[in-house]
Design a protein around this nucleic acid. Structure first.
Lengths: 416, 416
DNA sequence: GAGTAGGTCGGAAACTTTCCTACTCGGAGT
DNA sequence: ACTCCGAGTAGGAAAGTTTCCGACCTACTC
């Protein structure tokens, strides 16, 4: 009822300190008690108490002993890998991939299948089947998954369930989310695929430690995953980053600047016959075909144009070239930089190639799923000690603290 | 050294609870003890203790008694207005305005002067003189100001001191900040004027409670103040929102889409003679002059174009039309909406007129200055009880808590 | 007299300091 | 080469401190 004023009883201190212990262990790997004491600034008595409780609750477990120092061996502690399971799914145009990871990010199982074309129910069933397959291989069951994040090639509203403008997806609305939840009853979040690729870039790729960057995903369409202040920026209705529709001098308003269709059109215009796929055009270009190179250059120019426009609006620290044709960075990057240098910008623009190996969408999905599953598990382990008053102050560590991961909320921040 | 893990001794609880009390009083005006007790969820003993301490430290003061209920009158408490003074300054092309406000936002004094043209030292001296004038009228001295925020028509780096691309400002670099600080030795922050107008819009205008919005400032140039998640988005080097350079079909790259110069050019093209000022053109248009109306319409079209581009990148909830010609919203708004509906957008775009009376830049500057001055005063009042151990845990309420208002830091957030 | 404001006191919870035991490594002495 | 002992470290327990809370009491006004 009353807003969250972050006031609380003494039990609050325990939550705060237990959480601090958890965070230290999480960041700095297996750690001995003395090191945790130093890192948190707490007394060793308190740390010992917190560790006992966290182990009892299953969030932390012992991990051998540290014998590097002299004296008695220090017990090491680590996050319990099984305290949270997470499922990442990438629904692409051709394939659906899934990966099951544990709380420390270890891959437990992977699976993939052909993407069914038509019906939402088929897609949902495929996702559930992959989840079951992964769970089976990992020796657990699908219901044990603490969070599933599903990447889709569509605009997803901030509720993480409503889908708009679904390129190639069966249909819009909340149908897909509900169908998946029926078949796979675990906490679910849909997310735009480019956004997830951006998350992957932030966690595993070229943008570690960069607070503001934009991932340009070049694939069937062109989309941007925008990270500002270390957080995904989704826009009011999830439509941020739909940069394919940015006005371009050579393109009518309301049509896409770039995408497979437009590349094909340019290929025709360049006199390339037989309507080859984009991949084939890039391969030809790499082999030195002049006309294909012209198409590549035109593509690079349009990407540069989009990057310049985006930069003028939000001025990120870095652009990353990703997506299906991020693999063609060798061809594109230099040309994009040249166009940027020539045409664009009163401000310098840095652009680099994606640094994420494998399927970035899948990695982003599994990272986000893991983050959320773990956040929930941690909050449960830290919140509400058994002997706390049932009333529960207005403070709730699960959502109120500085660890807020709420995605749905409007996030009416108060700070400028 | 060790990162901030938000762990702390018992004194931390006092900080948290005192801060909660302070926040409640701040938000809900003068309040009696029982109401504070209810709002914070703390016990009345604790609240009483906190209030005693806060009053002793000067952050809170008594404000009469509440006799509406029966029984003994409840003592009311409010934020002590004088616990923080703040100075807002708007350095415009023609005039420099300053306003001195207290901790609760009351205007204590205002002053203005002609903007000196050439030298940085003159500008700085003018600012200091205005500050002295305000302080004198308010019965205090300039040194008592807890924070000064100076709005400038230029790009300001995230350090709040380095100026780039200064339209009409004497020169770039850190010269201005340093000169002002010499003449007026108080905590100083320079900020882009359009950004400050956006802050004003958020606090006093059309965007109260809107987390994501963009203020389009139409004046000598065109700039955007971007608020995302309730926070100003400044960009990597403070250059976010330089939307005047967005590519436009009818404009060569690298030139501004809109601004006084371009409006004049359009007026010439429309056959208007005598090179009238923008204001005169708008006045003619309001009087029904066809050619002037054409210029206005062209202006509206360009604003719509910019808004559409911005929306495709960040999809704010709302656009606000402000700046020097925000006053001409009656002429522009309908036309902008018409152009948006026609040309633009796969997504709907809401745009409204500014809701801030007076000088938005000045109001934004004084709000931000007040916010920062108060934040510092509150942190001081809440942090470090006298009888606390000198050691001091790694937790620091001043900067570490959920009340972080750091502007300079890169803000390497960890949450997606 | 009922309802409310404000104060005080004792108890409970949580953190810290201090003291103590146990363990291991390494060097010195036999 | 073996043994012994001191220094440094890990872990635990007890006492002390700080803080919050509930309960009781007084005083005030309708």
């Amino acid at each position: 009822m009353s807003a969250n004023y972050l006031a609380g009883p003494q039990g609050l201190l325990w939550s705060i300190n237990a959480r601090a212990v958890l965070d230290v262990i999480d960041r700095e790997g297996p750690l001995g008690r003395p090191e945790i004491t130093r890192a948190t600034g707490l007394s060793k008595t308190t740390v010992a108490q917190a560790l006992r409780e966290l182990v009892a609750r299953g969030a932390v477990e012992e991990a051998g002993a540290d014998t590097t120092r002299r004296g008695p061996a220090a017990t090491l502690y680590r996050i319990a890998p099984r305290c949270a399971l997470a499922l990442g799914v990438d629904i692409g145009h051709l394939r659906i991939r899934a990966v099951l990871v544990d709380a420390v990010g270890e891959t437990l199982a992977q699976a993939e299948t052909r993407a069914p074309r038509r019906r939402v129910a088929d897609t949902a069933a495929a996702v559930a089947a992959l989840a079951a397959e992964c769970a089976g291989r990992a020796g657990t069951e699908p219901g044990a998954v603490g969070q599933a994040v599903v990447g889709v090639p569509a605009v997803v509203a901030r509720d993480g369930r409503t889908v708009r403008r679904a390129y190639g997806l069966p249909q819009g609305g909340r149908g897909l989310a509900e169908a998946i939840e029926r078949d796979l009853p675990v906490p679910l979040l849909l997310e735009n695929d480019v956004n997830l690729a951006a998350v992957a870039e932030q966690r595993f790729g070229a943008c570690a430690g960069v607070a503001d960057f934009v991932l340009l995903g070049v694939g069937v369409g062109l989309g941007a995953g925008i990270v500002l202040g270390g957080r995904l920026h989704r826009g009011f209705a999830g439509g941020a980053g739909e940069v394919a529709f940015l006005p371009h001098p050579a393109t009518e308003l309301g049509t896409e600047v770039l995408g497979a269709r437009r590349i094909a059109e340019q290929a025709r215009r360049a006199g390339i016959e037989g309507s080859p796929s984009t991949r084939e055009i890039f391969d030809s270009a790499r082999a030195g075909d002049e006309r294909a190179l012209a198409v590549v250059d035109a593509t690079a120019r349009r990407i540069a144009h989009v990057a310049a426009s985006v930069a003028l609006v939000i001025e990120p620290e870095l652009f990353v070239l990703g997506g299906a044709f991020g693999a063609s960075a060798d061809l594109l990057l230099g040309r994009i930089r040249r166009h940027l240098a020539r045409d664009a910008a009163p401000l310098p623009i840095r652009i680099v190639a994606s640094g994420v190996p494998g399927d970035p969408v899948l990695r982003g999905a599994s990272w986000l799923a893991r983050h959320r599953a773990r956040e929930r598990a941690f909050a449960a382990a830290v919140g509400g000690r058994p002997h706390e008053t049932a009333a529960g102050g207005p403070y709730d560590v699960a959502t109120g603290g500085p660890y807020d991961t709420d995605l749905a909320g409007a996030g009416k921040g108060d700070i400028t």
